[in-house]
């Protein structure tokens, strides 16, 4: 092999500088982004990791304390509630928004009139910030002015709807709001997926005498299975990073019942001046994401390999 290279490699004629610049152009243009991304992904994460094992309090300092920050984090009841909330919220939020999104997509897929209008209605929350959504829903949940007040105004004076003010149920208020905001996005992706399925498949199933329900269950939904996974992964990211929604909706309350890791990190770092422990909490958030994303990315790589193998 190297023999060939020695014998056959031909000295390249000297190329003019313009041409050499031309062939380096892609790297020159890509370079800054690469450096920035590298710093953002690796240096920032490493940095925060380092702070999380340091004794930083009000300002970053670099005396190492090992895992003390993590220990005190996990010893804190509020953090445990936050972490539990994260899993509770993520589970319901993802399943809920996907279920509603899928239902809406299937409804719209029935050749309804005014499809564009329906789609726009269900999708517009995507354009609105969690802050706006959270603020408005906090009003609706408000027992004095919101839904409860409205129903009582109709004459049903014993009606009670105080989801967000009940420490046991406030987390569900957050979940409902999250699902409201996100299901349109799931709907859009599912609908696009349904539309991309080869219509011959559907025709074949119809000729086989399958009912609409069976066609969805046995033909369409299995075909768009990858979309389910993609939607789930996107939603999980939103779920784990959720800070705005809770900040605007419940501010973590009542009490500490709707604290989330994202809120907790913010409090530790900027309200209580415990930077080290805050960094530890941020790292735990990353860990929660990694638990989901690492297997997913392996799956994606595996699938791509398989496809390449077939191709």
């Amino acid at each position: 092999m190297s023999n060939h290279d020695l014998i056959l490699s031909v000295p390249a004629p000297a190329r003019p500088w313009r041409e050499r610049l031309g062939s380096a152009m892609p790297l020159l243009v890509l370079g800054p982004s690469l450096v920035a991304s590298f710093v953002y992904v690796f240096v920032f994460t490493g940095w925060t990791l380092y702070i999380s094992i340091s004794n930083s309090s009000l300002l970053p300092t670099y005396g190492l304390v090992g895992l003390d920050n993590y220990a005190s984090l996990w010893a804190n009841r509020r953090w445990n509630i936050a972490y539990n909330n994260l899993f509770l919220f993520s589970g319901f939020y993802i399943v809920g928004s996907m279920a509603v999104g899928l239902l809406l997509a299937i409804l719209i897929d029935q050749r309804v009139r005014g499809e564009a209008a329906w789609r726009t209605i269900f999708l517009y929350p995507l354009a609105v910030s969690f802050i706006v959504t959270g603020t408005v829903w906090s009003w609706l949940y408000n027992p004095v002015d919101g839904i409860q007040a409205m129903v009582r105004g109709f004459g049903w004076t014993s009606f009670s709807f105080a989801l967000a003010s009940d420490r046991h149920y406030a987390i569900y208020a957050v979940i409902i709001t999250g699902v409201w905001q996100a299901s349109g996005f799931a709907m859009a992706l599912f609908l696009a997926g349904l539309r991309s399925v080869d219509q011959d498949l559907v025709k074949a199933a119809q000729i086989d005498g399958a009912s609409t329900f069976r066609i969805y269950r046995k033909v369409l939904l299995p075909t768009i299975a990858p979309i389910f996974l993609a939607v789930a992964v996107i939603q999980i990211q939103f779920a784990i990073k959720t800070f705005d929604l809770v900040a605007a909706l419940t501010k973590g309350g009542p009490g500490i019942s709707t604290t989330f890791p994202a809120i907790y990190v913010y409090d530790l770092m900027f309200q209580r001046g415990q930077i080290g422990e805050g960094a530890a909490a941020a790292i735990m958030m990353l860990a929660a994401l990694a638990v989901v994303l690492v297997p997913y990315s392996f799956w994606v790589v595996w699938r791509r390999r398989k496809e390449a193998g077939h191709g």
């Binding site: 953002y40 992904v41 994460t45 990073k241 994202a262 990190v265 994401l289």
Partner: peptide, 14 residues
């Protein structure tokens, strides 16, 4: 990977 990093991780460096 940058898509996945939660903003909280980058707060201190920023």
């Amino acid at each position: 990977l940058g898509v996945f990093i939660p903003g909280q991780i980058s707060l201190m460096p920023w």
